[in-house]
Simulated assay, not measured.
Amino acid sequence: MLSLNKNLQKLVDIAQKPTKTGIGLMSGTSLDGLDIALCSFTGNGLQTKFKLLQFVTIPYPQSFKDEVQQVFARKTASLEQVTLLNAFIGNYHGELVLEALENWNITPNTVDFIASHGQTIYHAPKRLHQLQNFPNATLQIGDGDHLAVKTDIITISDFRQKHIAAGGEGAPLALYGDVLLGSKPGENRILLNIGGIANLTYLPGNGDTTQILCTDIGPGNTLIDAACRKYFDMAYDLDSAIAKRGKVNKALLNALLDHPFFAEQLPKTTGPELFGLHYVEQAQSRSETQNISNDDLVCTLSAFTATSIVNFLKTNITADNLSIFVSGGGARNPFVMNHLKQAFAETPITDTGDLGIDPDAKEAILFALLGNEALCGEPLTIGDNPAVLMGKFSFPV
């Protein structure tokens, strides 16, 4: 009788462990750095319990950001650059994982798996590309084999492709982790993530999975950060200092809000491919606001993010007794958060720390969770969302 090869046998052994240790990696559209979350998991599915053991964000050097920006959210880019970056990012992320483990005094052989989101360079739902003969598509680079070989840890990567293959748009994948970690019987919850793009998961307290909603809303930090980089040579608007100096230009704000995306059927996805500085320039042209100050521009873009979130919630979430839990960089943006709290004065709004989930680490935790599900879970049926297990396995040898 033939036996399993050692890689497959190791997968079986890991899947059968009562407690597994995994690393979740998240590199977002803001390109600020790599989020590395070391977690332990017991169980799977709705019985999953986790602990965040360690977390760090290792900032990217400007040289790395410059390389990725050459291919990021561009309809045309160097095929050679994409090919080279795919290998480079996988290897580089492996180096950063080893650096983090060394700083935590943890040896790689005690980690069961890495779950890597990769670096999104283009997101192309059919609604956006509108090419009749082509399906939804998305591309994340940072090859899993390079990660596995560099770290000597089994790596699970490229999660979004299965979601698309099964009929989804590849995002937001937060749905699966939010349902597993964020649901509470008897309490209607919104888990709002304000990263580069703003997205949310609505979790009804009655446990009816057909009522769960997970969707992108519109821009989160992406336009604010892009304007800060272009006009202030800053990665982002620290403590909303620029926005607080400026004034909201209502003509520009109305032009920014005037796009069919905001009225499209739910769930939906988007990205910097739509909401980039070109979008802002077009809105300024339509509203004849090209000459407003840079402070006013950042202030108006901050108001755009906040207003689009408020409009979405008031239009699409009608449940009473809501609690809103915020994560992502936007949870640290006082301008955006104050706007939300003023619009929903009767609704408790806190960050996901109140759920035991570090708001900065949430997305990395969620990918570690998806890795645990890939190892020992079963496909979850959540409304009309694809019931699939996601991720491709790469072995060190």
Rank of each mutant, 00 (worst) to 15 (best):
V12L: 12
I14H: 00
I14Q: 03
Q16W: 00
Q16C: 01
T19P: 02
K20F: 04
L34W: 02
L34Y: 05
I36K: 08
I36Y: 12
T42P: 03
T42I: 06
L46F: 15
L52F: 11
L53Q: 14
L53K: 14
T57W: 11
P59S: 14
P59K: 14
Y60Q: 02
Q62Y: 08
S63M: 03
V71R: 06
F72W: 09
K75C: 13
A77G: 07
L79R: 11
L79M: 15
G90M: 02
Y92V: 07
Y92K: 03
G94Q: 04
G94R: 03
E95A: 02
V97H: 09
N105E: 13
P108H: 12
N109R: 10
T110M: 08
T110H: 14
S116H: 05
H117I: 09
Q119W: 10
T120G: 07
H123L: 10
K126L: 14
R127K: 14
L131T: 09
N133L: 12
F134P: 01
F134K: 10
A137P: 00
G144K: 02
L147G: 02
A148T: 02
I156N: 00
D158Y: 01
R160F: 08
R160A: 06
Q161G: 00
H163L: 13
G167W: 15
G170W: 06
G182W: 11
G182R: 08
L192Y: 13
N193A: 11
I194D: 05
I197M: 13
D208T: 09
C214Q: 01
T215M: 00
D216V: 04
I217S: 01
P219F: 06
N221G: 10
L223H: 05
Y231R: 07
L238R: 13
S240L: 05
I242Q: 04
A243F: 12
V248A: 09
A251P: 00
H259L: 00
P260A: 01
P260V: 03
F262H: 03
K268N: 11
E273M: 07
G276M: 07
H278Q: 14
Q284H: 00
Q290F: 11
I292W: 02
I292D: 04
D295Y: 12
V298T: 00
A303C: 05
A303I: 10
N321I: 03
A331M: 09
A343C: 12
P348M: 13
I349A: 08
T350F: 11
T352F: 08
D358Y: 07
A361I: 09
A364M: 12
I365C: 09
L369A: 04
G371Q: 07
E373T: 04
P379E: 04
P386D: 11
V388T: 15
F395P: 07
